[in-house]
């Protein structure tokens, strides 16, 4: 089937004269002029603006949205480069249409994301001998190495400039850095105490082949997890800006001290300097403090994926021990039995909210009273009513018809589409609860789907089932098994342009690295949680995604061996109206019916306990066993 012609009035057209810009485009002319003025002052011919913050966060706070401010493009992934005459953004397929809607004609859009393509463009635009500037606190060691390698054989100089030039151009309009209180999670919501976690990391360091004396933690989920602390510096992520330097004899936490209550200071043992006392230092001191520590007889372990070049460059190379991920990332990836139980229980409550929403939609969409935005607001409200809720885990993706073809479309109060029984609707949403983070996607159709829509949906479901029921050897990397989620789509020439899953955990970020199915994810191990989320997007018509969270568990095999499989902990049935059972194999059908039985067992009693009888009846009906 050919993609439908969109009319494209919603996107910019820079080839006409005058250029045609949609209302959603941002005028960046003055912003670019202010940045170029700074570039001139610093003698830079190009300036690279990545999409992250000083902690390599995927979601960033308002003061860190530099790429968004300079380009107008609000997608969560994408790098901008500004030269004296040109400006360009590189982003992946999830955001191409969004970028065309939001950027004005000052900007080129490059539909790729590799650093090599960015470097190639800079080499073509910047003359020999000129400087290319970057903020070292916005580049991981890994990405700096890739850029550096790209420029090595050229005569352009990659220059680390610790003053952020976008911030200077942004000036007083730049939002302030957050200062909300940082609080300790009640112990019933944590898998271990912070002292136990510190001991585990120290033990890891002792057993490390290069015996580091200290580990520097830069990612925000590392400090939040290690100390069982949370705050709200970043939307949807309960984090606080911080670093930690954990050594064999001391613990230093770099954070604004005024954000702690007296009780939390006591919880952290901040009034001593013993090995189990947390010494607080100001956030801005991290570079100097690491430099001072590195002057001793020490070896500092860093995970290069999350440590920025800004901190890395002050550690002498002979005192560095580098791994891809810090020990905290690796230990955190495997949830202990208490953490698993907490996460599962948050998913039961979350399923209640999603089921309530689906029942509500079924009743109200035919009346024509629901739109994408009011729907998103309602499901967020349902989650907020759940115990231990701390709001959504990301901006709800509520997309009807052609809007669902944009994998990360979110409606606004001003711009949204009415839900209708005549088209498909995709809702991808999640909650932050004190016991767990959730993330689930369901796609539904309340009318008569086309044969192609049913086939595409069923094949996405087959991909989800094939990966979910897979039995594989322990310590297999996710990338090795990822194709199982795509096979049913591939065999008829369909595919999707995003990853197949991501780690998720206990009240941290919704995409909890390093678990997942990509080349830089760590090998699968018992106790990890990952999402499984194949999809299919038909530009201009509809989008499908079926996402569940799964726990990695031991598999029972006919012959003895160390094998793993997945156990779904998302408990919401798929849309029967869109499943073509004729396409399912007997094994897939059997798996699906067994999953539906699990949903009944886990969520049914909770619905009854709350007297949600309409929802209970709906669940019974939608989890009736399917037959070929």
């Amino acid at each position: 089937p050919e993609p439908k012609y969109l009319g494209r009035e919603d996107v910019r057209n820079c080839s006409t004269s005058p250029e045609r810009l949609p209302v959603t485009a941002v005028n960046t002319t003055m912003r670019l002029a202010a940045l170029r003025q700074q570039m001139e002052t610093w003698n830079l011919s190009a300036y690279i603006i990545p999409d992250t913050d000083a902690h390599m966060s995927e979601y960033i706070g308002k003061p860190d949205k530099r790429r968004e401010w300079i380009s107008g493009f609000t997608g969560s992934a994408g790098t901008a480069v500004v030269t004296m005459g040109k400006a360009a953004v590189w982003t992946d397929s999830r955001y191409w249409t969004q970028a065309e809607r939001q950027m004005d004609c000052n900007w080129e859009l490059h539909k790729e994301v590799s650093i090599s393509s960015i470097v190639a463009w800079i080499l073509a635009e910047v003359p020999d001998g000129q400087n290319v500037g970057f903020d070292p606190f916005l580049f991981s060691v890994d990405s700096w190495k890739n850029y550096d390698q790209g420029f090595q054989d050229s005569s352009r100089h990659l220059l680390s400039v610790t003053t952020n030039l976008v911030d200077v151009a942004w000036g007083s309009e730049r939002p302030p850095v957050p200062s909300q209180p940082i609080y300790a999670l009640p112990k019933e919501f944590t898998g271990s105490t912070w002292q136990e976690k510190v001991s585990a990391v120290r033990s890891y360091m002792e057993h490390h082949a290069k015996t580091p004396t200290g580990v520097l933690l830069s990612a925000l989920d590392e400090t939040a997890w290690l100390f069982n602390l949370r705050s709200s510096d970043i939307p949807y992520n309960p984090f606080f800006y911080s670093y930690a330097l954990l050594t064999n004899s001391s613990i230093r936490l770099f954070v604004n001290k005024s954000r702690f209550s007296l009780e939390t200071l006591q919880y952290l043992n901040t009034n001593c300097t013993l090995p189990m006392c947390v010494q607080l230092e100001d956030y801005s001191q991290v570079r100097d403090s690491v430099k001072a520590y590195a002057s001793g007889d020490v070896k500092i372990l860093i995970g290069v994926s999350y440590t920025t070049y800004g901190v890395y460059e002050v550690i002498p190379k002979e005192k560095l021990v580098t791994d891809t991920y810090s020990p905290v990332m690796l230990i955190k990836a495997v949830k202990n039995s208490k953490e698993q139980a907490l996460l599962k229980s948050s998913h039961v409550r979350d399923a209640v909210a999603v089921i309530q929403y689906l029942v509500w939609l079924e009743k109200n969409v035919p009346k024509g009273t629901v739109d994408e935005f009011s729907g998103a607001e309602y499901i967020d409200e349902l989650r907020r009513n759940e115990n231990f809720s701390s709001g959504p885990s990301f901006e709800t993706i509520s997309a009807s018809g052609l809007n669902a073809a944009l994998a990360h479309y979110s409606p606004t109060k001003e711009l949204h589409r009415k839900l209708s029984s005549d088209e498909m609707y995709l809702v991808d949403s999640g909650g932050q609860y004190w016991d767990g983070t959730t993330d689930i996607t369901r796609t539904v159709h309340w009318g008569t789907p086309t044969a192609f829509q049913k086939e595409a949906y069923t094949r996405v479901l087959m991909g989800n089932i094939d990966l979910s029921r897979l039995v594989f050897p322990a310590a297999t990397s996710g990338r090795v098994i990822e194709a199982f989620a795509r096979r049913a789509l591939w065999e008829v020439g369909l595919n999707y342009g995003h990853g197949t899953g991501h780690g998720i955990g206990n009240f941290l970020c919704v995409h909890e690295w390093p678990v997942g199915f990509q080349y830089n994810n760590i090998a699968m191990a018992k106790g990890m949680f990952t999402s499984i989320e194949p999809g299919y997007y038909h530009d201009g018509e509809f989008g499908i995604r079926l996402e569940d969270v799964a726990l990695v568990v031991e598999a029972k095999t006919k012959y003895p061996g160390d094998y793993l499989t997945f156990e779904l902990v998302s408990f919401v049935p798929y849309d029967r109206n869109l499943i073509d059972v004729r396409l399912l194999s007997p094994e897939q059908l059997q798996y699906l019916n067994r999953y539906y039985q699990t949903i009944r067992e886990n969520v049914g009693p909770e619905l009854q306990r709350r007297q949600l009888l309409e929802e209970f009846a709906w669940l019974e009906q939608h989890t009736e066993p399917l037959s070929a």
Binding site: R94, V113, I115, K145, N146, H408, G430, G499
Partner: peptide
């Protein structure tokens, strides 16, 4: 929420370096 596909560039660079150092 769907994760984006990570660029393979650094892996290619790492593989190329590994092959080069092995050959030499």
């Amino acid at each position: 929420r769907a994760p984006h596909i990570i660029s393979w560039t650094s892996l290619w660079v790492a593989s190329a370096l590994a092959i080069l150092s092995w050959s030499s």
